[in-house]
């Protein structure tokens, strides 16, 4: 597999009220082309910090991320063009309706009106949002907003998609639908970085998973390899053991 992103020794230290918190401690790994890479960890493990740094949203303290052997921070604009980011928090302009919002997103990425039209119709179909297209976002339920958030992140047809806990708050039916959508994206040749709390989700979707705890990588490999290596039948037992071992150190 071809390496798409090289995450090299990434550290992140937050400073708040004269206290320093080390959220990431020199994290190093590669992300391959056309894979679904699952980032697993408990709350505060550093998953969102790491995905935000890869999304060029947050400053790193040390280390680098290479795309085509060049730091993404030195090719910020071209890297952002091929990146779609679905954050954990619904950072939406609630006064716009779905149609307006997707139109604006398309324009932000310099898409033509024709391209916007086609892509928007496709996504509205995919996420079953057509009948709500003229609804303001504030009038939609949390689940529909989440659908929209995901649709927004792929509006410009990005090559790399970062999804930070995309299925939180979704009903089981929609969750399954989104899994299919993620697998379709992979089949289209996209690379997906998926942050999740749901271990079944990570197990089913991810080609490789990375267990992160207290800012360090605990394990990284294919789910089947990890389960075999640690002699567990399911990912949940493996995850709990990795976290327990770390906490006992």
């Amino acid at each position: 597999m071809n390496t798409l992103l090289k995450i090299q020794n990434i550290s992140k230290i937050y400073s708040s009220e004269k206290k320093l918190v080390e959220a990431l401690k020199g994290v190093t790994f590669n992300i391959y082309e056309k894979e679904i890479f699952g980032l697993l960890g408990v709350n505060g493990a550093g998953k969102t910090t790491l995905s935000s740094i890869i999304a060029t949203l947050l400053k790193k303290t040390a280390g680098d991320i290479l795309y085509k052997e060049k730091s993404i921070f030195h090719q910020l604009i071209s890297f952002r063009k091929i990146l779609g980011f679905c954050p954990q928090m619904q950072n939406l302009d609630m006064d716009f309706n779905i149609d307006e919002s997707l139109y604006l997103v398309g324009r932000y990425y310099s898409m033509t009106k024709k391209e916007i039209e086609l892509r928007r119709e496709f996504l509205l179909d995919q996420f079953d949002l057509k009948r709500y297209r003229k609804f303001n976002l504030h009038s939609l339920s949390g689940g529909y907003r989440q659908r929209f958030l995901i649709a927004r992140s792929v509006m410009h047809d990005p090559k790399i998609i970062i999804m930070d806990e995309p299925t939180v708050g979704l009903d089981p039916k929609l969750r399954r639908h989104l899994w299919k959508f993620i697998l379709d994206l992979k089949a289209e040749g996209k690379t997906i970085i998926l942050t999740t709390h749901y271990l079944d989700e990570a197990d089913i979707l991810s080609d490789r998973i990375c267990v992160i705890d207290q800012g360090s990588i605990k394990a990284i490999d294919k789910p089947s390899v990890l389960k075999q290596k640690w002699n567990h039948e399911n990912l949940e037992d493996l995850f709990l053991e990795l976290i327990k071992e770390k906490n006992n150190e």
Partner: peptide, 14 residues
Amino acid sequence: ENKKISFILTLPIT
């Protein structure tokens, strides 16, 4: 709180 601003900081612009 809302961090709506974070969306525009991932767009292809400085």
